[in-house]
Amino acid sequence: MLRIGSIVWGVGDVSRAIQFWSAALDYEPLRKPSIDWAILVPRTGGGPQLAITAVTSQAQDHQRHHLDLYAEDASAEIERLLGLGASRVEWRYPPDADYVVLADADGNTFCVVEKRTAKPDPDHV
Score class of each variant (00 low, 15 high):
37 W>Q: 07
100 V>S: 01
3 R>G: 01
1 M>Q: 02
61 D>A: 10
95 P>D: 12
98 D>R: 10
13 D>A: 10
115 K>S: 15
62 H>S: 14
65 H>R: 07
42 P>L: 08
27 Y>V: 11
16 R>L: 13
52 I>M: 10
59 A>K: 15
18 I>F: 05
34 S>M: 00
23 A>P: 03
52 I>V: 15
57 S>F: 05
102 L>C: 06
80 R>T: 06
76 A>L: 15
17 A>S: 15
86 A>L: 00
110 F>L: 13
17 A>G: 12
79 E>L: 11
31 R>S: 13
65 H>C: 12
8 V>I: 14
13 D>L: 10
46 G>T: 15
85 G>E: 02
35 I>S: 14
32 K>R: 11
16 R>T: 13
77 E>F: 04
99 Y>P: 00
34 S>K: 10
4 I>L: 15
111 C>Y: 01
46 G>Y: 03
37 W>G: 02
6 S>P: 03
11 V>M: 10
53 T>D: 06
25 L>F: 13
52 I>W: 02
121 D>S: 05
21 W>L: 06
50 L>K: 07
40 L>H: 07
66 H>K: 04
82 L>Q: 06
120 P>K: 09
2 L>E: 05
89 V>M: 14
9 W>R: 11
41 V>Q: 10
119 K>V: 15
111 C>G: 03
70 Y>W: 14
105 A>K: 11
115 K>C: 11
36 D>S: 09
95 P>R: 13
4 I>P: 01
28 E>K: 15
60 Q>S: 13
19 Q>N: 14
88 R>T: 04
24 A>V: 12
34 S>E: 07
30 L>M: 05
1 M>L: 05
29 P>N: 11
22 S>Y: 03
23 A>Y: 02
104 D>V: 06
112 V>S: 03
111 C>Q: 08
63 Q>T: 12
14 V>G: 08
66 H>I: 04
37 W>K: 10
114 E>G: 08
118 A>C: 02
85 G>I: 01
